Simulated scan of single mutants.
Amino acid sequence: MYCLQWLIPVLLIPKPVNPALLQTHVMFMALYLIGFFLERKPCTICSLVFLAAVFLICYSGIGNCLLWSTNCDTVRCDNG
C-alpha cells in the first residue's frame, strides 16, 4: 500500500475558486494521474481504493469532484 502515499494527496488539492482556472486544474489532475499510473503502476488494491475514494467524493455533492465541474455557480444549470 506504499503507492497510496502518492495518490491520497491528490484528493486534498483544492479546486481553484476562479472558474477560468478550473480547466487548467482538471488538465493538471488528469495528466498527473495518467502519468502516475503509467510510470509507477500501482497495485490493484491501491488503484481500487483510490478510484472508490474519487467515486465517493464526486458523487457526495455538487461541485466536489476533482476531475470535472458540476458546480452550478460556474456553469448554467437551468433547463430553459
Rank of each mutant, 00 (worst) to 15 (best):
M1A: 06
M1K: 04
Y2V: 08
Y2C: 02
C3H: 06
C3P: 01
L4I: 07
Q5E: 12
Q5G: 08
W6R: 12
W6S: 14
L7Y: 04
P9N: 05
P9H: 11
P9T: 07
L11I: 09
L11S: 09
L12K: 07
L12M: 04
K15I: 11
K15F: 05
K15G: 07
K15H: 09
P16H: 01
P16L: 03
P16I: 02
V17D: 11
N18S: 15
N18E: 15
P19S: 13
P19A: 12
A20K: 10
A20I: 02
L21V: 10
L22H: 04
L22G: 06
Q23E: 06
T24V: 09
H25Y: 15
H25E: 01
H25G: 00
V26C: 04
V26S: 03
V26Y: 05
F28E: 00
F28Q: 03
M29E: 04
M29Q: 06
A30R: 13
L31H: 06
Y32T: 01
Y32V: 02
L33E: 03
L33N: 05
L33D: 00
L33M: 13
I34S: 03
I34H: 00
I34N: 00
G35S: 15
F36N: 00
F36P: 03
F36W: 01
F36I: 00
F37D: 01
F37A: 03
L38P: 01
R40N: 04
R40E: 12
R40H: 05
K41S: 14
P42E: 07
P42G: 11
T44A: 13
T44S: 14
I45H: 07
V49T: 12
V49H: 03
F50T: 00
F50I: 03
L51M: 13
L51R: 07
A52Y: 12
A52F: 14
A53Y: 04
A53V: 02
A53M: 10
V54C: 08
F55V: 11
F55N: 10
F55R: 12
F55D: 10
L56I: 13
I57A: 05
I57T: 11
C58M: 02
Y59C: 12
Y59H: 15
Y59N: 14
G61L: 02
G61E: 02
I62E: 13
G63S: 03
N64L: 11
C65A: 11
C65W: 06
C65M: 07
L66Y: 04
L67H: 06
L67K: 02
W68A: 08
S69D: 15
S69C: 13
S69E: 11
T70K: 05
T70A: 08
N71E: 12
N71H: 08
C72D: 06
C72H: 10
C72A: 12
D73G: 10
D73P: 05
T74K: 07
T74A: 06
T74V: 10
V75W: 10
V75A: 10
R76G: 09
C77A: 14
C77R: 08
C77H: 13
C77Y: 12
D78Q: 07
N79M: 15
G80V: 13
